[in-house]
Amino acid sequence: MNENKRHLIENLMADYSAAIDSKDLERWPELFTEDGRYRVTNSEDYNQGYQHGAIWANSRGMLRDRISALREANVYEEQRYRHVSDAARLITEDEQNGTITVSSNFIVVRTMHTGDTQLFASGMYIDRIKFQDDSALFAERIVVCDSQKIDTLLAIPL
């Protein structure tokens, strides 16, 4: 992974957290490729090879639908996230497809409108990154939560 690619990945990661944490949710799907995949799973299911995701998408359209449902249809108390993640570690580099697979750790703190703050999720991102023009996009982001338990509901994506 050359310095330029590392730089692009760092920017992508930062954009991702900022889009969600600042509630600029419409920006979130745009960080994925057209056929980008996204899945929220847990380490038990992931290690056993189960494919299910609490959120499961294999297109940018599905991600957009997730956001429009949050905006227009779903009912949930006002809340916001704070992402903290560490540097991406290289897993594999696929020279032929021009993709890089990296992983990083994350925690998400959720604050409700009531002021109640809790550690909502911790885990690992496993990302396949694609480079287009002078930017990086997620071809796939698998969110592997450490715990199988989700408090109350998972509205905003992790």
Partner: peptide, 27 residues
Amino acid sequence: MIERRLKQANLVGPAGFISMEDGAVGN
């Protein structure tokens, strides 16, 4: 069929389009 089930699973569960509210309304 598996892919169909994985996609439609978005409707249910803690993040389900038609069920996430059930996690909160009891509270």
